[in-house]
Write a protein that binds this DNA or RNA. Structure first.
Length: 566
RNA sequence: UCCGGGGUCGUUCAAUGGUAGGACAGCGGUUUUUGGAGCCGCCUAUAGAGGUUCGAGCCCUCUCCCCGGAACCA
């Protein structure tokens, strides 16, 4: 990595500056601790990747730690299957957790005790109004709020009710615990927010032990404090919650420095749906075939699509952190994927629209059949260490249909009568003629080869204008590529309606790959990517033996190829 | 309507009050044992109006635009 690259990847951003400043000032005793707090109600997607790299890399950079804490305060939507999935995806991304993850639910008892403290202090009260009433009383933007009739009930009364709430004496939704702050506050979050609600649902970890559950606001800052988090980083929509975050911590006056919340802009991408709710809907209604469907921007979907984790990390590091609402172009992410894949993906040959190419002067063996030669071809021109493979070559080949023109257009340098081209890694061949069917369509091209040019270069050093890919007709293996016309649908999240996915049938298109590809890829794990010469990057699908997913450039799925071949 | 946060090339991220820079995209060229690879070049920006200053993207005032906030979601 050059110095320039280093400078770019360590571009200063306001959060990093903040932490650096805190360390210099000795805030938190020079300590740094962050946390990544997913709710286990879905799988991680590309949007989370930014938060993950911010939280983990910042801690790394300043010698601190980042906790993985599941924010499991809402039993309605959460499930332990998501816990395992998130841990696995995190590890894949490059952030394996050390030991067991943490859970907000582990702090339920402590949170409860603290809530009693607030009640005793006259800073919280139990309200038994229905939730429409509570909402109406909150007022509105620029409009005053109305205080609950229970607001000034004696602490002892609220305390008794709160204990009965916990004991399960009241129906779901009948009572809540509210913080007593200011019903006229200009920040709506501080108009006596809800701290606890009654909800009889099975919690994925605490089971039926609790019938009351803390809300996000009551749980989050306190969990941070329990864990000794110093910098609690979250996205911009929590900006107005920061006052409440601070308020709770102030009331509890816990020892040590209080954690501090800092907000930054979430990652949004063009042509990508990152609403967890919408993703869950697509999975639930069968529009896609699971959270790892390669059409989804989930981490496991991208993985199956061939995105290297390193590319995602580099992308996140590059875009940095700001407070500007923005939407990055998917092309930028793809450029990081390409750069990574250029160095790591093995090259193979495959033909989409086969046309027979007969080498008329190819020798035959004793049995009268054309002999078969095995040519050694490098796996990656950019990386010698990737070695080489043996590819069968014989007298009957398949080439790309548009790699031949009976009457060449201007600047067309590939095969046409009389022209010599290179068959990649094989021989220089010269077109001597072609055959057509009754309709005049070219069905077979004839050529002679230069036996001296084995490997692709002639001893006399003569050059050819073009190099083409090929497969041996007798050795070609049938494969197919999945065609997802509209993988990335919505330009704007709000427009990501279900309609947008109408045409999502994974049609596939036949592909003839060079021999041995089948064997080479039969046991590859998800995410193994090859670059088919001229066709692009394809990830081998682990579930379907010879199915490939296009990795990048989906928007112009085939048009770029057309451009290059036309 | 009230509160808060934002506004720099097409997109995004930069720029101690001192030459507005990079990447992606686009366009053009050039190369190459296939490029969607490489290399070279081009293109385009400080929302507006005042003010302070020798000097303003940066500081002040006003205006405009965008985003978030009134879940017993996170």
């Amino acid at each position: 990595m050059s110095e320039l690259d280093e400078d770019q990847s360590t571009a200063t951003d306001f959060v990093r500056e903040l932490v650096r400043h805190d360390i210099e000032q000795g805030t938190f005793g020079g300590r740094v601790k962050t946390r990544f707090p997913p709710e286990p109600n879905g799988y991680l997607h590309i949007g989370h990747a930014k938060a993950i790299t911010v939280d983990f890399e910042l801690a790394n950079e300043f010698g601190g730690l980042c906790n993985l804490r599941f924010d499991d305060t809402n039993p309605d939507t959460e499930d332990s299957s998501f816990v395992d999935g998130i841990i696995a995806d995190l590890a894949w991304l490059g952030y394996p957790i050390d030991g067991e993850p943490l859970y907000a639910s582990d702090y339920f008892e402590q949170l409860y005790q603290w809530a009693e403290l607030l009640i005793v202090d006259g800073k919280a009260y139990v309200d038994d109004q229905d939730f429409e009433t509570i909402r109406a009383q909150r007022g509105g933007y620029g409009k005053p709020g109305i205080e609950s009739p229970h607001r000034d009930a004696p602490p002892a009364h609220s305390l008794e009710l709160f204990r009965r709430m916990r004991a399960g004496e009241f129906a779901d939704g009948s009572h809540v615990l509210r913080a007593k702050i200011d019903m006229q506050h200009e920040n709506m979050q501080l108009r006596d927010p809800i701290m606890y609600r009654i909800r009889r649902a099975h919690h994925h970890r605490t089971g039926d032990q609790w019938v009351i559950y803390p809300t996000y606001d009551w749980a989050h800052g306190q969990s941070d404090a329990i864990e000794g988090v110093t910098h609690s980083l979250c996205t911009l929509e929590f900006d107005s919650h920061r006052d409440l975050y601070d308020w709770y911590l102030e009331q509890l006056s816990l020892p040590g420095d209080r954690p501090r919340q800092t907000e930054f802009a979430r990652l949004e991408l063009t042509h990508t749906v990152t609403s967890k709710r919408k993703l869950a809907t697509l999975v639930a209604d069968g529009t896609v075939d699971g959270w790892d469907d390669p059409r989804l921007p989930t981490l496991r979907g991208l993985r199956r699509r061939g995105y290297p984790a390193a590319a995602i990390r580099q992308f996140c590091a590059y875009i940095g952190i700001s407070r500007t609402n923005s939407r990055h172009q998917i092309e930028l992410l793809e450029s990081f994927v390409r750069t990574e894949l250029n160095q790591t993906a093995q090259r193979r040959m495959a033909v989409l629209n086969p046309l027979h190419l007969q080498i008329t002067d190819w020798p035959t063996g004793d049995d009268g059949q054309p002999i078969v030669e095995h040519l050694e071809i490098g796996n990656n021109p950019e990386n010698e260490d990737d070695g080489a493979r043996q590819v069968a070559f014989s007298g009957e080949l398949l080439i790309e249909h548009d790699d031949f023109m009976a009457e060449p257009a201007p600047k067309y340098f590939r095969l046409s009568p009389g022209k010599e081209v290179r068959l990649r890694g094989a021989f220089l061949v010269t077109c001597t003629g072609f055959e057509t069917d009754a309709d005049g369509n070219v069905i077979r091209v004839l050529a002679t080869h230069d036996p001296e040019s084995r490997g692709g270069s002639a001893p006399d050093g003569r050059k050819v204008k073009s190099t083409m890919h090929w497969v041996s007709a007798a050795h070609a293996v049938d494969a197919h590529v999945a065609l997802y016309e509209r993988l990335f649908t919505a330009e704007v999240p709000g427009e990501a309606t279900d309609d947008a996915f109408d045409d999502l049938n994974p049609n596939s298109r036949a592909l003839l790959t060079e021999c041995k590809l089948e064997a080479a890829l039969a046991d590859t794990p998800a995410g193994d990517v090859v670059q088919f010469e001229r066709l692009g990057y394809f990830a081998h699908d682990p579930r379907q033996p010879l199915l490939f997913h296009r990795t990048v450039g989906l928007r112009d799925e085939w048009s770029n190829i057309q451009k290059r071949t036309g």
